[in-house]
Structures are given as structure tokens and as C-alpha cells.
Design a protein around this nucleic acid. Structure first.
Lengths: 197, 197
DNA sequence: ACCTGAACACCGTTCAAGT
DNA sequence: ACCTGAACACCGTTCAAGT
């Protein structure tokens, strides 16, 4: 069901492929320790390639972020599948799904803001991931709706906008991932028919 | 009641004061047309001062933003006073207050993100404005609580975090200010006892 | 077809020299 | 006490020269 969600890419020459992989691997490490705004120059340096090479493969920072987050979409899909099929009460299932998203998008500092910004920008390389995200959320919300627990008129895109906003707040201000919970609780209260379950 | 909320500042020499004012005035214009991340170098150039002068007055970009937003706090206080004293049904009063905030923080592109980031960072020059903001929100929420319309355990700071997150989403993605409404509606549904009013 | 690395433009920051 | 502007470090981006 979830083969790599990546776009089909024409095969690269051996050395180009090696450089491509090295860059992505290096970027992943750099993004993890310095955030998604880490210096591209230094990524190139650490990867042992010239800046032009990085540029050829990734014309924009977002393109690189997109490549680094390639597996991310798979995780999102897995998490949403699990939440949608969950036997847990609607509130717990939804809460878990939101929490996992905040956690997942939080591993790269600054990534939440990029995702949030790309949410309505089809020109962004990350836009595709946002579509996947909204689709996944739709799936989870539908499962809750089937149980009659969702308020009328709740839109998956709007919900994802708010939740990515919350993820960004958590990421940008120094607060911990646990501090997302009270905010998510407000959203849950806002979209569920009965706050109790 | 609302004299300028600014901090007391020791008087500057005449020329220094003139430069200070010119810089703030220029920055305000630049921020308005190019956003809160506009080049400080060009602001200095347009203001007719050396970069060192801008730096002396505003050691950090946030300090400059803070100065540019000096009147902003007064508007926030005025809006919250009006909302707290409003005869409108709780939902309308709250909704108007949130909307005005999103609108106000949206006049400088990128400002919402700065406010959001400073919300829990006492070291930031903008932190003081966030405190004012949370205080103002507290005031409005209390007035709603007095009418028995607010759910138990709703915290003014949490609410402000979410709303500033929404303001940031609206600002960063290309969507219009009107598109904040459906998201704010979810928050309202989440913090009010009875969604109807 | 792909890579290198010098070159460029821009930006924030510092500081010695001036008044 | 305050300002100027040259100087520096850094960063993203381009492109001619190489293989």
C-alpha cells in the first residue's frame, strides 16, 4: 500500500546519484541539529561537493527539504491509517493522530513553519506533502464522522491549517512538545460533538 | 487610561533623537511594503544614516520591530476594552476581538511569526507586547466567563498561542484575512460552553 | 552529463576615525 | 555623546572551465 511516495525520477549517472544521496544524507543530519535553515554552503562542504552541485540537484532550499522529508509522508500515512482504524474512542484516536503529527513535523526545527507556509502554495515543492497530509487527515476525520462524533461542516484542510499552526508555535517558541496538548484539546473540543468522548 | 505604553527612555541628544525617529519612520514604511524581514541596510540607507547608527539604537531587528509596533499595544488594549464591555452575545464579542487581532498583527508581513515566537521568550524585546496581548485577552475572556459562557479551564495564554498561530498561518500562506474566520470558529467552538451563543 | 570553485551581490555586524 | 563608513564574515547564486 505505501511504497515510497516519491515522484518518479529519471535515473542519474552513477557519480551524480552518489552526490545526490550524500547531499540528502548530510542535509538530514544538518537539519536535525541546526534546523531547516542551516547553511546550504556548509551542507555542500560537509557533503564534499561544490555549491554548484547542490544547486543543480536542489534549485531551492525547499526542494532539498522536500527530499529530506521523503520518508516523512510514509510515516504520516501510516499514522493516519492506524488512527482511522483505531478502536479507541474518537477523541483519543484524533488526539493521538494530532500529537504524532506535531511530533513528526517537529524533528526538524523550522520545518513546521515551512509546511504551514506551503499549505496553500501550489508552487512550493512541499505542497505535495501538504496534500498528502490533508488527505491523511481527511481519512481520520471521516472515520470519526462515521461514528457520529464529528460536528457538521468541519473541513480537513482548515483543521490541518490550525494544527500546523500549533505545531509551528510549539516549534518556534521554546516550549516543549507536551505543551501542544492543551492547545490541541481546544481544537478537539471545537470539532467534536461531545467533548467527553 | 491608555497613555503611550512605551517604556521610559532617557532623553537623547537632539540629533540622535532625530535619527531615531527617522529610522523608526522609515522602518515602518519598509516593513509595511516589504515585511518585517526587510533589509536593515536599506532602511539605514533610506533613513540617511550609517548602518552603525541603526545598530546603536536597535541592537537587534526585534528591537526595531518593537519600536515600530509601539502604538500597536494601544490598539490592542482599546480593542480588548471594547470587546470586554460589549453588549453583544459572547461569541460575537470574542469573534470580533480575535479577528481584529489577526488583522492588526497582519499589517506587517512576518510580524505574526515574530509575535508568536516571542510569546514564551522573555529575552525577546517583543515579549512585553506579548504580555500585554495575553493580559488583554484575559480581560476579554473574563468578561465572557462572567456571563457563564466560557468553558472551565480555558487559559488566556493557550488561547493566544493558538490565535497567533492562526494569524501566522494566514500571513505565511497566501490566503486572505477572511480565511481566518473558519479557523477562529473552531477555536470559538472549543472554548465556549454553547456554540450557538 | 556532471562537477568544481572562483566570482558576485547582498546582508548583518563591528569598529576606528571623526565631530 | 553620537555618527560615519570602511571592513569583515557569511550566505545564496551564477557560470566559465574542466572531466
Amino acid at each position: 500500500m505505501s511504497t515510497t511516495t516519491g515522484v518518479e525520477r529519471k535515473p542519474l549517472r552513477a557519480d551524480a546519484q552518489r552526490n545526490y544521496d550524500k547531499i540528502v544524507e548530510t542535509a538530514r543530519a544538518m537539519f536535525r541539529e541546526r534546523g531547516a535553515d542551516a547553511s546550504l554552503d556548509e551542507i555542500a562542504k560537509r557533503a564534499g561537493v561544490g555549491p554548484g552541485t547542490l544547486y543543480r540537484h536542489f534549485p531551492t532550499r525547499e526542494a532539498l527539504i522536500d527530499a529530506v522529508m521523503r520518508d516523512w509522508a510514509d510515516r504520516i500515512n501510516a499514522d493516519s491509517d492506524e488512527a482511522a482504524a483505531s478502536e479507541l474512542p474518537p477523541r483519543e484516536a484524533l488526539s493521538g493522530w494530532f500529537s504524532k503529527f506535531v511530533e513528526n513535523v517537529g524533528i526538524y526545527h523550522g520545518a513546521a513553519a515551512k509546511v504551514m507556509a506551503a499549505m496553500d502554495d501550489p508552487a512550493s515543492p512541499i505542497y505535495r506533502k501538504c496534500q498528502i497530509l490533508v488527505g491523511a487527515n481527511q481519512k481520520v476525520l471521516d472515520s470519526v464522522r462515521d461514528k457520529g462524533a464529528l460536528r457538521d461542516g468541519v473541513d480537513a484542510r482548515e483543521v490541518m491549517r490550525i494544527v500546523s499552526g500549533i505545531a509551528t508555535v510549539v516549534d518556534q517558541s521554546g516550549i516543549g512538545a507536551d505543551d501542544a496538548e492543551p492547545m490541541l484539546a481546544i481544537v478537539l473540543d471545537g470539532i467534536l460533538v461531545d467533548p467527553s468522548d
